[in-house]
Write a protein that binds this DNA or RNA. Structure first.
Lengths: 218, 218, 218, 218
DNA sequence: TATGAATGAGGCTTCATTCAT
DNA sequence: AATGAATGAAGCCTCATTCAT
């Protein structure tokens, strides 16, 4: 254990350092996706990376840090891909559809990453994982919430609790990798389109009579 | 280890035996809900039940069997409660709403159970857990799928892939316990109503112009 | 735990007491023979006897005591059967043959007992087992030794070390149950006759030139 | 646990690895010989080797594998020594004598090994031990059987069942380590000679009158 | 006498992490 | 930077034995 005080007091991580960390993060992702969180031990991750287990501890002070980086890596990569894809959508409804479809296609194209992320989501006993995960999820939820709210202000969406809808959409999105893992032959385009349509309908302004069974709303 | 070959040849477990098993299942649920699956060791579960760890092995031949019973206990109890609540719904739309609201309220009233179930859902490395879980989940999905399909045949729902919608609803439902755990002060009635409304809208027959189906792309 | 001070200070073990002890000894024999010494736990023995595990501790102060009784039971029974069979043999050679054949036939007729005894012979880590076993074996060896020596004095046998021959015969006899277990279809009569013949030849006085490669003898 | 997938992909175990494995095998032998199979736990073996118990699992994936190696080690070493000694024997009778004497002397020179092997022979509940042991024992028996049969064809031995004689000799040989353990002061040369003589006489062709074969009885 | 639930020690194994090289 | 042997804690499970009933 030395990092943090980078190799020979350079503050910039050496190239090899960065490369190793990436390699290890990727090995961790592949391992978790394949054998599950519980069996993703240092030894197994190291085997896949074709290095020794000790080296993981050299580059990451703790297993929690490695897993944290796994989450960061996956979410960062995903965010980048998603924004690229969802860029030029005009209008809130189109943006929502674009986002959903982009996500589904991303899942289809990055199954191991998404499976690993899923595993980690439910195994947040490690404090560092939990923290990073909470941040990530809260960020994601907030963005959705904000999008819904703005859409409502622009009268593109009907009245509903942005938070509730955000949580619901999040849940529906998290079901995607699982379903793709369970039924790999799923028609991805169709799935994406159906999912987007469902939420489009769920948020669309109502024809005339605004339904309002329930009053208390936050 | 003694049971499995139940005491002598009585097939009826003694009263105390049944009580202990229940107690242990409940202790396991509470422990998993509180500290997470990975840290729910026999020692911790036994501590909560105020018995010695060895006693768990006495009543359950394997950790997998205990966890299996946990799942059975939770899903059985939930199914009973849900059917009781969703009884008198007339029509597919009403039934859908009733089911969703019943689920949300059930989650609110049984937070530890639902959290534990959630944990187990994603930690299925144990074969017995995996088996029981697969059964449960596939049953749940199938029921939803069937409900959607029948609703479509009755023209109560628009045309969509029953499987996709089932998976989506399942995902949205699984998000409920998480949200309730994250924000315990959530207005449950409102949440239930909003969620039901969202899916009601998502499945409702379209006014006239049937929305563009899905153009194969890629 | 009470025995030793027999039930209600009678010094004679009650009838039921004796019956239970016998039953338990027999259950222990059958269990050891079937699943092996290492897996012959109280629970398994009790299962076979259709009683509760606690009852074993009630009748035998310790597992060692039970095993000791197992040995006593087996060897006693065997000795009785053997002497009955080997009675009217006239002459040392005939007596040797009778003894060997009787033993082989006894093994064939009491396979579980002999297997259990064999198991115990090699698992003498328990002090009580070890003691009883040592006594039994030393007794057996001494008897053989004495028989050989007397036969030599009567010029019925050639000169050899009685101890060595006794040990050798003992070893050959112990191989019998193992072979019968391994090849249950073995022709027992043939085996008995062959074995007896081998030792008959090994001890017979030599024609004329007594071979004597080695001098030091004790 | 790490090996099994040997370090990276080197198929050659490192020097230190091999040394440790040898050391552990030897510690296991000594421990079994001293306290018996049942009490030869990892903790005790590790104590003798002055390492931590976990390290045994690091070098041997399972206790069964360690014990298997113990058997392999002992039998290999013994076979080597025996063949070296029994080389230049001319004729079947001489070969038999040489083999028996070589065995006795080997036992005398390697008491712990032979005691350990004896212990393992009768405690074959572990599947890996059982497999290795069955192979070893069946091999040994077959070799003896073959030797006897060829000797009979060459008229060097009288007519008898090769299998029975092989089993008998095996039993007599297995008694050797036990006797040496029980009476360490035994005159080994004398024991070896006596044992060899006994079997020499048991297999020798009969003068003229072929002894009565075996009359079916029962 | 008998039951069988309960305990507590001990067994094997896995693992993150350390450290000499 | 890297290795991989080594440790120590923790996990699950089995068992002889005890004890309230």
């Amino acid at each position: 254990m030395q990092p943090k005080i980078r190799s020979r007091n350079k503050s910039t991580p050496s190239f090899i350092e960065a490369a190793r960390r990436d390699q290890l993060v990727e090995a961790a992702i592949a391992t978790i996706a394949e054998v599950g969180y519980a069996k993703a031990s240092f030894v197994r991750i190291a085997e896949r990376a074709a290095i020794s287990p000790g080296l993981i501890s050299y580059h990451f002070s703790t297993k929690g840090e490695l897993l944290e980086q796994v989450i960061v890596h996956i979410t960062t990569t995903m965010d980048r891909a998603m924004s690229a894809r969802a860029e030029g959508a005009s209008g809130y409804v189109a943006a929502l559809r674009a986002m959903i479809e982009a996500f589904v296609h991303y899942c289809a194209g990055h199954r191991p990453e998404m499976l690993a992320l899923l595993q980690l989501s439910s195994n947040a006993e490690d404090p560092e994982v939990a923290k990073e995960l909470a941040r990530t999820q809260e960020t994601g939820l907030s963005e959705l919430e904000e999008m819904f709210q703005k859409g409502q202000e622009a009268r593109a969406f009907r009245a509903f609790s942005p938070r509730t809808m955000a949580v619901t959409l999040m849940g529906a999105l998290e079901a995607v990798p699982r379903e793709l893992a369970l039924r790999p032959e799923t028609d991805v385009d169709a799935y994406a389109c159906e999912l987007a349509t469902a939420f489009e309908l769920a948020v669309q302004p109502l024809p005339h009579a605004p339904r309002a069974k329930h009053k208390k709303r936050r």
